[in-house]
Design a protein around this nucleic acid. Structure first.
Lengths: 139, 139
DNA sequence: ATTTATCCTATAGATTTTATAGAGTAATAA
DNA sequence: TTATTACTCTATAAAATCTATAGGATAAAT
């Protein structure tokens, strides 16, 4: 299961994607509409800003808006940002790789082989799942 | 990521699968060979027994052994037993289904649509990943 | 200056994960 | 029948993670 943080992030991103481009939206508006605790959402949006996905404007008329194109923000990136690796085992991740204690030879490990396939398929699907794609499916 | 519990369970099952059928193996032997805390492993094996996957014998010459055929034990079942649903969102699971707060119409939700696809693909792969298949890949 | 609204740090409660302790039960064999 | 072996069961505790909140700092607009 993805964390609530990731779920909130996706909901906020989809909400922002549906708005006219670059129009700043209040945190409070997103929080209310998507039923997200406002203070919690603040931290999430900040992370999305640091990741270069969102931008913000302070003061009156301020708020958050999408910096990247909805075509360039995919679920794999968002999930990794908040929940870490998508892989189900540490030995099949790229960035967070960790060897298994009991593993003698990784190249011949049947368990690893299975979970590597799962990871690859999942990442492929999640990469294709951009904000644009989600909104497009949203009918 | 799967929990250590699930990882331990898989390692123990693969270890038992490689042994001659129905020969009881000591918990301590599995624990030692697979680097699993023994007391923790005890609980795991008990769960696998309650799930009908393993059987056990008490007293001298006792231990655990595979009850089901390695062909009939797949990773989807094992993961669900210890970590719960495989789906990444509560609204795309079958058994643990939960509606999203903010969702107006599930049938048209683009987010759900994406994660339903991921779930279905993952489950399909994990169902095919039986103990027999894992050992077979293990070369 | 004042108001607005994001930014930042610290913290706390709740839940889950991982692990251990110790007594109980059943099977085996001498 | 007694001793030994090894699984069974309950309770608990330490550690880590997740979720959420509080309160002040900073920057932009009027």
């Amino acid at each position: 299961m993805i964390s609530k943080k990731t779920k909130y992030a996706i909901n906020a991103l989809v909400y922002l994607s549906k708005k006219p481009n670059q129009q700043p939206i209040l945190i409070s508006e997103i929080a209310e509409h998507e039923h997200i605790p406002q203070k919690f959402l603040e931290a999430i949006l900040l992370d999305l800003k640091k990741a270069g996905i969102l931008a913000s404007k302070k003061g009156k008329g301020g708020g958050y808006f999408l910096l990247k194109s909805p075509n360039d923000v995919n679920m794999a990136d968002v999930m990794r940002l908040f929940d870490g690796p998508i892989a189900l085992l540490p030995c099949v991740t790229h960035k967070y790789y960790q060897k298994c204690d009991e593993c003698i030879d990784e190249e011949t490990c049947g368990i690893r082989s299975v979970f590597l396939e799962v990871r690859n398929q999942t990442v492929e699907l999640l990469k294709k799942a951009t904000l644009a794609e989600i909104i497009n499916r949203d009918h």
